[in-house]
Design a protein around this nucleic acid. Structure first.
Lengths: 192, 192
DNA sequence: CGTGTCATGTAATCAGTTACATGATTCA
DNA sequence: TGAATCATGTAACTGATTACATGACACG
């Protein structure tokens, strides 16, 4: 069972919530899982057609005078089975690429100043992210209590929160290390 | 300045350490940055040729009787400039996809048991990773003291360590949440 | 004698983004 | 009047993996 297209499962997942159009799916993804998933129309529209041709989804066309038709897709039983099979299959854990780390790995070439710049920018990003996760969490707890999906949504938000918190700590530690390194460099060049 | 091919910079980075072949580069990447970067030959060999044609690297052919030639590439001054420009450019921070979180987001469909399974598997992975980071760190501190690159290498390892530690905490928290959820489900089904 | 390592590479395929095209409607 | 939103889609491109092909040598 090789790692197949993951976009299709994301799409099936949202269709499992109810019938919607490609446009709707895009909006939903941005609003709900945008922090760890995104899809472009270039993926969504072809995949919806494909799902239909495979019998995993059905399409109902809503004509709208003048404007292009609205195509509302709904998931089929076969689609639900496919989705559930994916949910039950193991996650393949190939570590993804990290451009920041690659730069830092070679950062001696660029010097401490540059490295500090990279980390500071990254720290600001994580800081914003952390606040966002906090905000989402309290918003969810406030506005969606009772929703049976809520615990699972919170789990994904908590993930982001834990990671951002850890990365902020790493940034501070790293800025300390780099500061020390710079001090030493300064001392060395004074002597030399 | 659109986001160009990152593989080329990884390759230039290793060439900046000294002349080496495509095969060498692959091994080096695995051994040094394998936890957050990887390259396939399908990328490496064509890119090396391309770098040469752009004047960013030079190639020296070592004929070996019988076996295929060994092609040793070295970085040029232009290549160094290209590498340094990349090092100084900002990291683009599009959050990458996270399949585990996507599954957990929809996990109510699959049920608590399945969710627990996913998280437990992930926890084992992180546990192994964390130990690996610890081992690498002490190995580096022991065997490479004095190497001017060491502080930067340690920074990348510490990143992994911080993240793995945070993810272990998240796993434990999540397994707690899911356990509670299962208890409630059990209680509800007893009543019903 | 088989497995693993050294060492090159290509072709097919997949996954995904970006840019483009169209055009009505709504809102400030 | 102009920007944003609704809503469809395609084509070109990029980035990357996978599978394949070749063949010698070393090690146990």
């Amino acid at each position: 069972m090789r790692a197949r297209n993951r976009s299709r499962y994301a799409i099936l997942g949202f269709l499992s919530w109810g019938p919607m159009s490609g446009y709707d799916i895009r909006k939903m993804i941005e609003a709900s899982v945008g922090n760890f998933w995104r899809e472009s129309y270039g993926q969504i529209y072809p995949i919806l057609r494909q799902l239909e041709s495979e019998g995993l989804a059905r399409c109902r066309v809503e004509p709208r005078d003048g404007r292009p038709d609205r195509k509302v897709y709904s998931i089929s039983d076969a689609g639900r089975r496919e989705l559930d099979a994916w949910l039950a299959s193991p996650v393949d854990d190939q570590p993804s690429r990290n451009e920041l780390l690659l730069k830092l790995f070679f950062a001696r070439r660029a010097g401490t100043e540059e490295a500090v710049g990279l980390v500071e920018t990254f720290r600001e990003l994580q800081s914003r992210l952390f606040e966002r996760y906090e905000a989402i969490e309290s918003e969810l707890r406030g506005g969606h209590s009772g929703d049976a999906d809520l615990p699972y949504w919170l789990i994904t938000v908590r993930y982001g929160r834990h990671v951002s918190r850890a990365l902020l700590d790493w940034c501070d530690e790293t800025l300390g290390t780099l500061g020390e390194l710079r001090r030493k460099e300064g001392a060395a060049s004074e002597k030399g």
